[in-house]
């Protein structure tokens, strides 16, 4: 087993973890924002694209493109992070005026931590690469 293959396996694992974290964060977010679509759509898209990328990697399809997929999912996660952050700021106004429980903010913070972790992992994978294939880099 070459060092390259070892790196690929590591990269694949990181990418899988990043995808799972994204999926969990979607679920966490749904507990406070069941009807807020933009964030949900972004996150769902990120999860689906990650899954598709993993599938493509398994099939050894176009490794340069597969390796570029984390760049796209990182951008999607970044979008979702920003959207949710603004929602959280808005929500703080409601908490300060005692219209909503402070637990709402805790959920947002949990979501933000998850999604930022996922984002970092996506960026790490972007640097390290995933796909071996014929043109393993």
């Amino acid at each position: 087993m070459s060092e390259h293959n070892g790196n690929c396996r590591k990269g694949r694992m990181i990418w899988i973890v990043a995808g799972i974290l994204t999926l969990i964060s979607v679920i966490v977010f749904q507990t406070v924002r069941s009807v807020f679509l933009p964030v949900t759509i972004l996150m769902a898209a990120s999860v689906i694209i990650t899954a598709a990328g993993l599938f493509a990697e398994k099939k050894h399809l176009a490794p340069d493109i597969v390796n570029f997929i984390p760049v796209i999912t990182a951008a999607l996660n970044a979008f979702a992070t920003v959207y949710a952050f603004f929602l959280m700021v808005d929500k703080i106004i409601y908490v300060v005026t005692a219209l909503e429980p402070i637990s709402t903010i805790y959920t947002f913070i949990a979501y933000e931590i998850l999604i930022i972790l996922s984002l970092i992992l996506h960026i790490i994978v972007s640097f390290s690469g995933i796909s071996g294939g014929k043109t393993n880099d």
């Binding site: 390796n67 570029f68 984390p70 760049v71 796209i72 990182a74 951008a75 996660n77 970044a78 984002l119 996506h122 960026i123 972007s126 640097f127 690469g129």
Partner: peptide, 9 residues
């Protein structure tokens, strides 16, 4: 590729 990810983010 990594730089692309960071700047895209």
């Amino acid at each position: 590729r990594g730089t692309s990810a960071v700047t895209a983010m």
